[in-house]
Measured scan of single mutants.
Amino acid sequence: MQRVNMIMAESPGLITICLLGYLLSAECTVFLDHENANKILNRPKRYNSGKLEEFVQGNLERECMEEKCSFEEAREVFENTERTTEFWKQYVDGDQCESNPCLNGGSCKDDINSYECWCPFGFEGKNCELDVTCNIKNGRCEQFCKNSADNKVVCSCTEGYRLAENQKSCEPAVPFPCGRVSVSQTSKLTRAETVFPDVDYVNSTEAETILDNITQSTQSFNDFTRVVGGEDAKPGQFPWQVVLNGKVDAFCGGSIVNEKWIVTAAHCVETGVKITVVAGEHNIEETEHTEQKRNVIRIIPHHNYNAAINKYNHDIALLELDEPLVLNSYVTPICIADKEYTNIFLKFGSGYVSGWGRVFHKGRSALVLQYLRVPLVDRATCLRSTKFTIYNNMFCAGFHEGGRDSCQGDSGGPHVTEVEGTSFLTGIISWGEECAMKGKYGIYTKVSRYVNWIKEKTKLT
């Protein structure tokens, strides 16, 4: 034993070699072989497995989906700052455009905790909710729209109204504003409101030439003092309507412009014939205590009207009353817009006519005020429907199939267009061939041609 100890002390290297040989010859039971080890760690190889990531292109799944990435790591994937920024906006807080917040056709661009709407022409605001041009839906104005110097929408209202708090709607500024039905039992019968379409306001006024200088022999019209197929109006439903009495009662109609003036057809009036105007009328054979009678003290036909040349060209006249009318729910003026808007309103496509005229061709006159909704007829169809001249200051309205029309005794009465609950004068009943005849239409004086003249002559002093 002493000898062994001496050998170990003198030859430590020998001992180490012996131990190493023993270990190498022993069977290893701690580690699995290569094949079995792979069965336990069965993990798919990654895209760049075996390579240094710093030297390969980034992978979106590896960089940002398996674990949260930084902007720089995302930049490695896209290799483009702009594309990385677009991805980053949604990656950080989701897609803010998912709810489609942009209105009126706006395009949404996502941002971090926010979004941006790219608005089409005519709109602005956070969600493109603000109209900035009158060309689109009248700028959301209830009545009139004008573009300011910086191309912003400025709404306005006709006389007797003021802008509401929203700067879009119009509200009454006087007790009985024009064009409004205020009798409670008839307010439910107000005709369907007309909503502004998209309009090209630059070209809204037709490029028409008034044929002022045409000389033409007097034409022989049949029954051209021209509501057939209409309905009984309720008291106060058309408070701007008046009836004219002269040699015979209810020979023509008219509309209240203001307390002192009536507008009617020029062919209705004769110099030297006494005319009485009755406002607030409903049943011409009954006294309903809503009527107001006034005498006409002055007749002003349009300066281009000449019955000797043509009885229905420039067929418009103004009547001055001896005493002002007292405005109330049964006696209310009709609204008159400017030339541009009167023309736009007419193009809405349908209007209402009213009167006490004959209820059928050569038949009896109506006792109760009649009204009828009539569609506008395109000019080409209008011209083809008659052998008589249709001037540019006239328009056609009615039904091709016949059966409904204005008729004798309705002449001078109103053709009105309702705009968001307020009625505007767009025409004056003038003439036609018979009444409600198939293929024939009622012919009306186009008020847009005469609004400046009306307003100039009827100013209240």
Results as ranks from 00 to 15, higher is better:
5 N>Y: 08
8 M>F: 11
15 I>D: 02
16 T>C: 09
17 I>W: 11
17 I>S: 02
18 C>T: 07
19 L>Y: 06
19 L>W: 08
21 G>S: 13
22 Y>L: 06
23 L>I: 12
26 A>E: 02
29 T>S: 13
30 V>T: 14
34 H>F: 08
39 K>Y: 05
40 I>R: 09
40 I>M: 12
44 P>Y: 10
45 K>I: 11
46 R>E: 15
49 S>A: 05
50 G>Y: 10
50 G>D: 15
50 G>R: 10
52 L>P: 15
54 E>V: 04
54 E>F: 06
54 E>P: 10
54 E>T: 07
56 V>P: 15
56 V>S: 14
57 Q>M: 07
60 L>N: 15
62 R>I: 12
65 M>T: 10
67 E>H: 11
68 K>L: 09
70 S>F: 07
71 F>C: 04
71 F>V: 15
72 E>I: 15
75 R>P: 07
77 V>W: 08
78 F>K: 15
80 N>V: 09
84 T>D: 09
89 K>H: 09
90 Q>D: 12
92 V>H: 08
94 G>F: 05
94 G>S: 11
98 E>S: 14
98 E>V: 10
101 P>Y: 02
103 L>A: 04
113 N>K: 11
115 Y>G: 00
116 E>W: 02
117 C>F: 00
118 W>K: 01
118 W>F: 03
122 G>F: 03
124 E>Q: 06
129 E>C: 01
129 E>Q: 11
130 L>T: 14
131 D>K: 05
136 I>R: 10
140 R>P: 07
140 R>T: 04
142 E>T: 08
143 Q>Y: 02
144 F>A: 00
144 F>Y: 07
145 C>E: 02
145 C>F: 02
148 S>A: 08
151 N>W: 06
152 K>R: 14
153 V>T: 14
153 V>R: 11
154 V>G: 06
156 S>V: 05
156 S>K: 08
158 T>G: 04
162 R>S: 10
163 L>I: 07
167 Q>A: 08
167 Q>K: 05
167 Q>G: 05
168 K>H: 14
177 P>R: 01
178 C>E: 01
181 V>H: 10
183 V>D: 08
185 Q>P: 11
190 T>V: 11
190 T>S: 15
191 R>F: 09
191 R>C: 05
192 A>Y: 12
196 F>D: 12
198 D>T: 09
199 V>C: 06
200 D>Q: 08
201 Y>L: 08
202 V>F: 14
203 N>C: 03
204 S>I: 05
209 T>A: 11
209 T>S: 13
209 T>W: 08
210 I>G: 14
214 I>F: 08
218 T>S: 13
218 T>A: 06
218 T>Y: 09
218 T>V: 10
220 S>R: 06
221 F>A: 12
221 F>H: 13
222 N>K: 10
222 N>S: 15
223 D>R: 10
225 T>P: 09
225 T>N: 14
227 V>K: 10
227 V>N: 09
228 V>A: 14
230 G>M: 09
231 E>A: 12
232 D>F: 08
232 D>S: 13
233 A>R: 05
233 A>H: 06
241 Q>H: 14
241 Q>G: 06
244 L>E: 01
244 L>H: 03
245 N>P: 03
246 G>V: 05
247 K>P: 13
250 A>V: 10
251 F>T: 07
252 C>D: 00
255 S>I: 08
261 W>Y: 08
263 V>G: 00
266 A>F: 02
267 H>L: 02
271 T>E: 14
273 V>N: 12
273 V>D: 08
274 K>A: 08
275 I>Y: 06
280 G>I: 02
281 E>S: 10
283 N>M: 11
285 E>C: 06
285 E>V: 11
285 E>W: 11
290 T>C: 05
294 R>E: 01
294 R>L: 02
299 I>Y: 08
300 I>N: 02
304 N>I: 03
306 N>H: 10
307 A>E: 07
309 I>Y: 07
310 N>K: 06
318 L>I: 04
322 D>V: 03
323 E>K: 13
326 V>C: 07
327 L>R: 05
328 N>L: 01
328 N>I: 01
330 Y>N: 04
332 T>A: 11
334 I>S: 01
334 I>Y: 01
335 C>S: 01
335 C>Q: 01
337 A>F: 01
339 K>G: 07
345 F>M: 08
349 G>P: 04
350 S>W: 15
350 S>Y: 08
351 G>E: 01
354 S>W: 03
355 G>T: 07
356 W>V: 07
357 G>P: 07
358 R>C: 04
360 F>V: 09
364 R>C: 04
365 S>C: 04
365 S>L: 08
368 V>I: 14
370 Q>M: 04
371 Y>V: 11
371 Y>W: 14
372 L>F: 14
373 R>Q: 14
373 R>C: 03
373 R>H: 13
376 L>V: 08
376 L>R: 05
378 D>S: 09
380 A>Q: 10
381 T>L: 08
382 C>P: 02
382 C>A: 02
383 L>K: 14
385 S>R: 11
385 S>E: 06
387 K>G: 08
389 T>W: 13
396 C>F: 02
396 C>G: 01
397 A>F: 01
398 G>N: 03
401 E>Q: 11
403 G>W: 14
405 D>S: 15
407 C>K: 04
409 G>R: 11
410 D>I: 15
412 G>Y: 06
413 G>I: 09
415 H>E: 00
417 T>P: 00
423 S>D: 03
424 F>S: 01
427 G>M: 00
433 E>H: 12
433 E>P: 10
435 C>T: 03
436 A>N: 12
436 A>V: 05
437 M>Q: 11
437 M>V: 14
437 M>D: 11
437 M>I: 11
442 G>T: 14
447 V>D: 00
450 Y>S: 01
451 V>N: 03
452 N>T: 12
454 I>G: 00
456 E>A: 10
458 T>E: 01
460 L>A: 07
460 L>D: 12
460 L>E: 10
